[in-house]
Every structure is written in structure tokens, then in C-alpha cells.
Design a protein around this nucleic acid. Structure first.
Lengths: 186, 186
DNA sequence: GTCTATATACCGATAGAC
DNA sequence: GTCTATCGGTATATAGAC
């Protein structure tokens, strides 16, 4: 019996396995903590194949932290809630890899900054009003802080958040920054 | 002329210079990115002296990220504002070192978790009400996100924040999570 | 096409000269 | 007390056997 796929297909499948293993390792240990050897072992291939397929560890990292393109719909506020739900659930591997290294790997810092700057701009455009940029940045950075505190630092109070708690406490508070009338009268 | 200090005093001064250099290097490049050699060069001493004084790179790191003891006063909300002012200004070196490595160095992760858990507990005790822990955690994690977005990611919208903007927009929003009446009527 | 063996470079840490 | 020289270990990346 012949092999089920062509050589090219088998090669592509191996490359994909390596990429997924890399996202997991980078997401767990960061760019410097993860090694080509550990990635290869997780993928079940030889370490030299990792370089063969992706050129270098840094090139592989750049691909591993690439986030899927955002839906650029009109319902920005609704989209914000979707993001919140995602951030409170399990994080996708590429997001974990990006967040894990964003403070120590310059490429990751830059990628995260570009991503968040764009998100702030979208949110500010939808919200409007005085200090729209600042209020959008407060919302975005708070979701970032919540994500880090919950999934990476594992704060006690954020370990388990029930659905009702999200609806009654987390969600309304996050949108409050976008409304101008939260600001106190003078 | 004799030297201005005793040998012991000179040795202590050298140790202090090494510690400050270590905080700067760790704060800039993280635990893994900073090297004993780079710390020694910044301090103007020989690399072997770094080990001589502090035993190992990891021991030095543990000391470098140690935060000064918090004032445990009664005015928790007022203290929160002080913290906010600090976080919006220049960060102390030990804080930079701790935050920089908190996602990649397990010791730093643990230190940050303990620190924030305690802060959440204090804030929740002062606030009270339903979901006090969760609302306190929202406030604390948002300050963390704001700190990271401003000082480490350098988001455009947070690059410069004026004093009035802090008073009218940032401060009231951060305390909103602590008030129960922000939650919408049902 | 895949793996073995290795080249090259840095790391942290140590021993000993001065 | 401080610096020179180096050890032992591990990393990325490559070259060549199969």
C-alpha cells in the first residue's frame, strides 16, 4: 500500500505539527525558555527538521504569534463582548504565545502594541466624545490586565468566574469606560 | 591619604552598585535576557564579583525584585490613588524588574501573584458588598494592565496623560468597580 | 527526505594568580 | 579583595551519512 498522501502533503502536515508544538511551547515558556529541542520533541520530529522547515527559531516564533485577522464589522461594542468572552475562556495557542513573551521579546512587544493600538483606534472611533482615545485605551488595557491576572498569574479572585458574575459585574463595568456619563458632574 | 571608607563599607557600596545595576538590567531585559556579564559591566566591576557577592544570578534576581513593604494604613481607597499616581509616573527599578519577568520567570510570577492577591484582599475588605473580591480584582488587574500598556507596550493613547485627564477620566473609572451601584438595575 | 554528528558561540560559575 | 583564565554545560544552526 502506498502512503495515504503525497510527499508534499506529508511534509506540510509535519510543518503544521511543528508549528502547533511551537505555539504550545512558546505559550508555556516564552521565546527564550522554549528550545528548538523541546519543540521538536513535542512534535515528535528531529530538532534539525524544525530549522529545515522554518529557517530559524526566531522565524518560527514570528509565525507562531501571528494572530488571525480581526473581523472588522461595524458592531464594535458587540465585538468587544465577544473578545471578553474569549479572554475569560481558554486562550488560543497563538494568543498565549504572544502574551507570554510580550514583555521580554521585542518582536512580541511590537506585535502586541500594533494589535492593541488598532483596537483602541476602532473603539475610540465608535465611541466618540471627549477623551475617546483615552477611554478606549482604558477599556483595552483593562481587558489585557484581566487576561494576564486570570490566565498567567492565576489570581485567587479570578480563578473561577461564573456566567452571572460576568453579566452583572464584569461586563457593565468594562463598557462604563466608553460612556461619557460615567464621569462625575462638576 | 587613606581611603574614605573602611574595606567593609567599600564592599557594601560595591554590592549596592551591583544590585542597582541588576535591577536596571533585569528591568530592561528580563531574568533570562540580562547576563551576569552585562550587570557587571553596568556596575563597573568584574563579572566574578557579582557571583562573589550574591551567590548566583537567581539569588541576585530574587533580591532585585523584592518590593518595599506596603503601608498597611486604614485609608485603602486613598492608598489606591497613591498607587495609581505611582503607576502613571516613572516606575521604581524593582517594580520594572518584577513586571518585566513576571510572565516568563516562575519566581517573579509567584511574587507578583502573592503581591496582587494581598492587595485584592485588602481592597475587598474595605469595600464589602456582593462580589467584593471580584470587583477588587477588577480594579487591581486594571491598574496592572494600565501599567503594562503605558510603560512596557507604550500604547499611543497612553503615552501622555495629563493631570486633568487622570482626575476626570482615569480615576473615577477605576473606582467605579468598587461601587456596587455601578451595576445596572434589573 | 530524515537523522547523526558536529561546528560555533555564549552562558553561569569556579579556581587561582596577584 | 579584585581580576585572569577557564571549566562544564547548553543553545542554535549546519554538514553530511543514509
Amino acid at each position: 500500500m502506498d502512503e495515504p498522501k503525497t510527499r508534499a502533503a506529508r511534509r506540510a502536515a509535519t510543518a503544521q505539527r511543528i508549528l502547533e508544538a511551537a505555539q504550545t511551547e512558546f505559550g508555556e515558556h516564552g521565546l527564550e525558555g522554549a528550545t528548538v529541542r523541546s519543540i521538536a520533541q513535542r512534535a515528535g520530529v528531529d530538532p534539525s527538521l524544525v530549522i529545515q522547515h522554518y529557517g530559524s527559531k526566531n522565524d518560527l516564533f514570528a509565525i507562531a504569534i501571528r494572530l488571525p485577522r480581526e473581523s472588522t464589522g461595524d458592531d464594535v461594542a458587540g465585538h468587544l463582548f465577544d473578545v471578553l468572552d474569549v479572554r475569560l475562556g481558554e486562550l488560543p495557542p497563538e494568543t498565549r504565545a504572544l502574551v507570554r513573551s510580550m514583555l521580554t521579546a521585542p518582536e512580541a512587544t511590537e506585535a502586541m502594541r500594533d494589535f492593541l493600538n488598532e483596537r483602541v483606534a476602532n473603539l475610540a472611533r465608535a465611541g466618540g466624545g471627549d477623551d475617546a482615545d483615552l477611554r478606549a485605551a482604558l477599556t483595552v488595557s483593562s481587558i489585557l490586565g484581566l487576561t494576564i491576572a486570570r490566565h498567567f498569574l492565576r489570581l485567587d479572585a479570578l480563578a473561577e468566574i461564573s456566567g452571572p458574575q460576568i453579566e452583572t459585574t464584569v461586563r457593565p463595568w468594562l463598557t462604563a469606560a466608553l460612556d461619557e456619563d460615567v464621569r462625575p458632574a462638576r
